[in-house]
Design a binder for these strands. Structure first.
Lengths: 111, 111
DNA sequence: TAAAAATTGATAATAGCTTATCAGTTTCAG
DNA sequence: CTGAAACTGATAAGCTATTATCAATTTTTA
């Protein structure tokens, strides 16, 4: 299980550990099917190409380390987002991304 | 004042109302300066190119309409994000994006 | 005001990601 | 088996967004 959503290139790299010789086209092809059928969703972050994750996971959010750029899944959700929604708007979904420094990079920094 | 963060193309379009003949290169050039000096920040959303907004605004978040794709600024912040941050991680910033239907599109839908 | 430096718009070039193509292979129904 | 349909990997092609280039113009400096 991945620690967070993956870019197509990362998906390819991971898949090749089980299916050596897989091509990037297959990744994009299946990704598109997964997205269309609602099995996966796209997470866009500044500075890199979109990442994707399976949509059968518990509702959660993400943390990107400013140092190693790794994206981690978090547990839980602060809630209270309806309070931000303007009059007349309908809130359907939301995405929260935290930015900072992960434990590993934070440690490196101190040494 | 814009209702939300703009793509480079939208920035160009807006700027040309005041400075006709401005080129896209100038937009990117100045955007890069703004970003480097911390005057502007980048908002990435799935499906479109990054949007940018001035960073001298009150802390706030965004709402994208699934219908017209317009991005709106919201007021306020739910807080409580430190509770999501794993042990050993350092939280520096965060971004919240709500998705749904804006008042205008919601109205159209009902008619 | 003259020369140097900085900025501009147009557009060519680049870069990166995504899709299309195609021949070879696999799957599967009959 | 057997033929049709679906799928595959490699790679060419396409597409967008961004950057580099360059001559012309504007601004700055002394």
């Amino acid at each position: 299980m991945a620690s967070g959503p993956l870019t197509p290139a990362e998906i390819l790299e991971a898949a090749r550990k089980r299916v050596p010789g897989m091509g990037i086209a297959t990744v994009y092809r299946n990704l598109k099917l997964f997205l269309r059928s609602g099995l996966a969703r796209e997470i866009a972050l500044p500075g890199s190409s979109s990442r994707y994750e399976l949509f059968n996971l518990e509702h959660h959010h993400h943390f990107q380390c400013r140092d190693c750029l790794q994206v981690y899944c978090l547990h839980g959700c602060p809630g209270g987002l309806h309070a931000l929604t303007p009059e007349g708007f309908v809130l359907e979904e939301h995405e929260i991304v935290l930015y900072g420094r992960c434990a590993g990079c934070n440690l490196d920094y101190k040494m």
